[in-house]
Amino acid sequence: MNITRRRGAIAFFITLGICLVGLAVALNVGWIILNVHQRHVMFLVLGICFFSVLIAGLILNTIFLVREVRRNERQDSFLNAVTHELKTPIASIRLYLETLQRRPLDDAQRQEFYTRMMEDNDRLLHTVEQVLRAGEANAKGVIRNAKARLPIDLRELASEALAETVRRHHLEPTQVRLEDRSPAAVYVSGNAQSLRTAILNVLDNAVKYSPGGVHITAELSVLRGNVAMLRITDKGVGIPPPQLKRVFHRFYRVGSRELSKIKGTGLGLFITRAIAREHGGDATAQSYGAGLGTTITLQLPLLSATAAAAQTQAPVAEIVS
């Protein structure tokens, strides 16, 4: 009902804006005809300027209004998604606890229940962390303190994120693989926890949006000798070209009747790009269309082995090895 009401509001204000613009154009044309006939050139020029400003104001007001309504729709969708993501694991944990309290279970069943509750707890914690990090990213404060940045082995970090994705989503190790195209160690400077979150967000999306089967490839390489690049490619549903830039907006999710059933808050890629930019890099998306998979690329400034050794006060040979 809320979505239908807002769509009606959008249609109403667009129609109102068009009518007002049409009225302004009609008045402008009438003013021109009247003043051309009476040869009042000064009034003619003033009338043209006045109505041009009026038309521009009406158009800008309509655009702003429509954007605000759509932003409110995205925020409502986000609140509904977050509510669902919070309630589902809480209800699951409560059910397991009630079962443990009311029924005698053998040790194997109890251990299985404990495992499920830990997974629900991790899911709950992940959702809370996403919301908190989105607030930090919106405030431009992911890693403000440069002194907190340390050398990070991007190869090791990507391997850990891939292993965690396999464990979290109960995948086979062959479904997720790392292709290392860099001849030497790849170090970047930053916050390891933030970068791990950025990579995990991309991997989580790759899993969620691959309903036909998960096949993820993470490719690590060095671009132009000074940029570390991690490309994560899946064979999922893909992204329509017009939506490639918008997927990094806060609360934005690819709109489709089929995809609306996929759980999520619309914050993952927003947080990923914010973290990448706070590290002096960027995140981009590439897809050839629906059903053709997606590639998310993280680019980060490369840290030389010498600089990494200086920051960690360790021998260069030890870091390279």
Score class of each variant (00 low, 15 high):
R167D: 15
R155M: 10
L171N: 00
Y252R: 04
A146W: 09
N226F: 09
V186T: 09
P240G: 03
R167Q: 15
L157E: 08
L244T: 06
N226W: 04
G264P: 04
V222L: 10
N145C: 12
R196G: 14
T233Y: 01
P242S: 05
R250L: 08
P183L: 02
D180T: 11
A228V: 01
I152W: 11
V176A: 10
L220P: 01
I199Y: 14
V207F: 05
A228S: 05
G213H: 03
D234E: 04
G190S: 09
L259N: 12
P240Q: 10
K261L: 10
I232N: 01
V207T: 03
D204Y: 02
K208M: 06
A184C: 04
L162I: 12
G190I: 01
A148K: 13
V207M: 00
L178E: 06
R257P: 03
V186L: 07
R168Y: 09
R155Y: 14
L195Y: 07
K261H: 14
R177P: 00
A158P: 00
P242H: 07
R246K: 11
R231D: 07
T197W: 07
S182Y: 06
K147R: 15
V176W: 04
D204T: 10
L244A: 08
Y187H: 07
R155A: 12
R155E: 14
E179A: 11
T174G: 15
H169K: 06
I232H: 01
G264F: 02
M229C: 10
V176D: 05
K235A: 05
Y209G: 02
V186S: 03
L200K: 14
P183W: 03
R177Q: 06
S159F: 09
Q193Y: 12
T174N: 13
A228T: 06
L178Y: 05
H170V: 12
G212N: 00
E172C: 09
P211H: 00
I152K: 12
A158L: 15
Q175W: 04
P211D: 00
R253M: 01
S221Q: 03
L154C: 13
T217P: 02
K261T: 13
L171V: 02
P241G: 06
R149F: 10
E164P: 03
I239C: 07
G236T: 00
S189F: 00
T165P: 07
S260Y: 13
K263P: 03
D180V: 15
G225H: 01
A148Q: 12
P173T: 10
L203A: 02
E172M: 06
D204R: 06
A192P: 02
R181Y: 09
A206S: 14
N226L: 04
V254N: 03
P151D: 12
G264H: 04
N226R: 07
L154Q: 11
I262R: 05
E160A: 09
L200H: 13
N201D: 07
E258H: 11
R246T: 14
D204Q: 02
Y252P: 05
